[in-house]
């Protein structure tokens, strides 16, 4: 393999490795979907204000 071959292989493989590592690290460090959902306000209607007047 010549020098240009080494350069092309190194650039190609390392670019892809960097991209996939960046994406996977970001995805795996995100909170679980279920955790995100429970951050929202509770939407349970307890009907406790119906007779407030």
């Amino acid at each position: 393999m010549n020098t240009y071959g080494w350069i092309m292989m190194t650039i190609s493989v390392s670019s892809v490795l960097m991209l996939v590592t960046f994406c996977l690290v970001k995805v795996l460090n995100l909170p679980a979907v279920e955790m995100e959902e429970i951050k929202g306000p509770l939407e349970i209607d307890t009907h406790d204000t119906e007779d407030a007047d």
Partner: peptide
């Protein structure tokens, strides 16, 4: 982007 990059990993690497 993650799914695409995983495909590239299998293909190129």
């Amino acid at each position: 982007l993650t799914a695409t990059s995983m495909n590239e990993f299998f293909e190129v690497c």
